[in-house]
């Protein structure tokens, strides 16, 4: 399945890209993050939440179909 991974704020600064595409088999969020942390080691030291199709999820959430994944650093609205 194809995933679109979106990065925001200080996370986008660390990955030096706003988004990327990834081909991957069914996986949990934590398995996906393991892969992303190998590609972008700075993520190991950063605080972020994960959204799948605009909904926040826990790391044990399983991604079973094409989705938009977002790595969201601490919020700073207002």
């Amino acid at each position: 399945m194809q995933l679109t991974i979106k990065y925001f704020g200080m996370i986008a600064e660390a990955t030096t890209m706003p988004e990327e595409q990834l081909q991957i088999e069914h996986c949990s969020v934590s398995e996906l993050l393991e892969k992303l942390k190998i590609a972008h080691p700075k993520l190991n030291h950063m605080d972020f939440k994960v959204a799948v199709d605009q909904q926040l999820v826990q790391e044990n959430y399983t991604i079973t179909k094409e989705a938009e994944i977002a790595l969201l650093p601490p919020f700073a609205g207002g």
């Binding site: 925001f8 704020g9 200080m10 959204a51 977002a70 969201l72 650093p73 601490p74 919020f75 700073a76 609205g77 207002g78």
Partner: peptide, 19 residues
């Protein structure tokens, strides 16, 4: 709400705002 704020200093360096 997922809004992010880059605080810009007078010397054009920055840090990230956190609520």
């Amino acid at each position: 709400v997922p809004v992010f704020g880059k605080e810009i200093f007078e010397d054009e360096t920055h840090q990230w705002k956190q609520n």
